[in-house]
């Protein structure tokens, strides 16, 4: 009897869902599955376990080994060549970019769906979660909260008004002789009146066409060291100026500002074959990097 009820429920649920489903999937996708409109490929300058050198506040060079680098992406928007801005829902497009999930070339892919067909000139996204979003509609935070809660709430400050940790960078100090502060640990959020949320805008080097028959990718370099040594006019931040070692608000602000400085589009792969989200989720991040020269356009 109980089983019968269960099946009846399932059957009716299915019926209800089918009859209620207002099919909005008008992206011209003839195949079953969710067409990937574009792929944002983040190629990091460092992988986990890589060594790098930063300058501390006493001008000493510190040798470090990267152990964690991750950030939340939210509020993705693309702009058409006609200056129309298309905002993607955070329940679709928000993502946690975690270097721990990178492939052997330190690339982490982010799959964008539901972008209307057309010609686009730029993309923007937030690093972290804006206060507006965090204190706004809870329904629009379903995916963001799931991302933040991965790995035992690794991107959650439960005791902070804005629950989201926007980004983390951690590294082990390899310089055993130093008397300076030891390991690198910088976590950014909106805490104590210092809001580390920043928006990044990337202009495409050429027009990006979104169409059902292709899933173009946007190959973007992520220069992790530039968080500390940004290009002008960014302000340099000593690696021990914030975080565990009692920093200043100014250093935190400068460091957050530098997030906008670390992303740079390398090139587009405008004509890559169409893929479905369900397929890439199945072999999650197991892709080979198909950086074939013929698909480049610098």
């Amino acid at each position: 009897m109980k089983n019968l009820r269960k099946w009846a429920f399932l059957a009716l649920t299915t019926t209800a869902l089918i009859s209620c489903n207002n099919d909005d999937d008008s992206m011209g996708n003839e195949n079953e599955g969710t067409h990937v409109s574009a792929v944002l490929k983040f190629e990091h300058s460092l992988g986990l376990g890589d060594e790098f050198t930063l300058t501390d506040s006493e001008d000493n060079q510190q040798n470090l080994e990267l152990t964690k680098f991750k950030f939340i992406v939210s509020d993705v928007k693309v702009t058409t060549t006609n200056d129309e801005v298309v905002a993607l829902s955070n329940n679709d497009a928000a993502e946690l970019i975690d270097l721990a999930n990178a492939d052997e070339t330190d690339v982490v892919r982010m799959y964008l769906t539901g972008i209307p067909e057309g010609s686009y000139k730029s993309i923007s996204f937030g690093v972290g979660v804006s206060q507006e979003v965090a204190s706004g509609s809870t329904e629009n935070q379903i995916k963001l909260m799931e991302l933040a809660e991965q790995d035992s709430e690794d991107m959650v400050w439960s005791w902070n008004p804005n629950s989201y940790i926007f980004s983390k960078i951690e590294a082990t100090n390899l310089d055993v002789t130093t008397t300076a502060p030891t390991n690198l640990q910088i976590h950014v959020g909106n805490k104590g009146g210092v809001d580390g949320f920043r928006t990044v805008e990337l202009i495409f080097p050429e027009t990006l066409t979104i169409a059902s028959k292709i899933s173009p990718s946007i190959h973007t370099n992520v220069s992790i060291e530039k968080l500390f040594t940004p290009d002008a006019p960014g302000i340099e931040v000593a690696y021990d100026a914030i975080g565990a070692h009692g920093g200043t608000d100014d250093a935190s602000i400068n460091f957050s500002d530098n997030y906008a400085n670390i992303f740079e589009i390398e090139h587009l792969h405008p004509n890559e074959a169409a893929i479905n989200l369900e397929d890439v989720e199945m072999d999650n991040h197991a892709h080979d990097d198909e950086d074939s020269e013929d698909s480049h356009s610098h």
């Binding site: 400050w157 005791w159 902070n160 008004p161 640990q185 976590h187 959020g189 805490k191 104590g192 009146g193 210092v194 914030i242 975080g243 565990a244 070692h245 009692g246 920093g247 608000d249 935190s252």
Partner: peptide, 14 residues
Amino acid sequence: ARINSPNPFATVEE
């Protein structure tokens, strides 16, 4: 103090 401090790693002394 812990809530209002901008530094998530601030020590008790700080």
